[in-house]
Simulated scan of single mutants.
Amino acid sequence: MSVIMPRAVTPDASFLCELVIGYGRDSSGNPHVRISHPEVGWNGSTVTVERLLLGLAHGLGLAYGHAYPDAGRLLHYVPPIWALDYGHPDTALNMPPPPRGWQTLVRFRGFTFARVNLDPNLPALPQDQRLFTGRIGLRTNVPASLI
């Protein structure tokens, strides 16, 4: 009898604190948040970490490649907390404080582009099959107790 394991596993709070999160802008000035894990690609941990990153990408509603479709999830901002809703029933991805310019841009535009990278250290141009992207809207009128 064989056991079928899911490819993507929804991460919990213990995994989220290990993520590497970066902020930036593209050539059009659109804000980006980049998410990766430093251990992806190392022998011994690749399968588990990759499955958790796939779960995060799936929960955020991201898609393969560089298209950045509407993800259907939200970035919540309750000063000073920035948190991504990735579909987990009990937790959100609380992000480290972004640079002030990035915060201003996201609040002005009302969205950010997000990418989850399955390769370590956020390479500038990862392969499409190792990158999940999407456009995530901003919500500022959420009770702090929800994040």
Rank of each mutant, 00 (worst) to 15 (best):
Y86W: 02
R100E: 12
D90S: 09
R100N: 10
P89W: 03
P99F: 03
D90W: 05
P99V: 04
V106N: 05
W82T: 06
R109L: 15
M95G: 08
A92C: 15
L93Y: 06
D90Y: 10
W102R: 15
I81T: 15
M95Y: 02
V106C: 00
G101H: 11
A83L: 07
L84E: 04
D85Y: 01
V106R: 03
R100D: 09
L84K: 06
Q103V: 13
R100P: 15
L93I: 12
P80Q: 03
T104Q: 11
P96M: 01
A92L: 14
L105V: 10
P98W: 00
P96C: 04
T91P: 07
N94W: 09
W102P: 15
W82L: 08
R109S: 10
D90R: 15
R107H: 07
A83C: 03
P98K: 01
L93Q: 08
L93A: 08
A92G: 14
L105H: 12
N94V: 15
H88Y: 02
W102N: 11
R100T: 12
D85R: 09
L105T: 15
L105P: 13
L93D: 12
N94F: 05
P99D: 04
R107F: 00
V106M: 00
P99Q: 07
T104M: 01
Q103A: 14
P89Q: 03
R107S: 06
A83D: 04
A83G: 06
P98N: 05
P80F: 00
T104S: 10
N94E: 13
G87R: 07
W82S: 08
P97V: 08
P98I: 02
Y86V: 09
P99K: 09
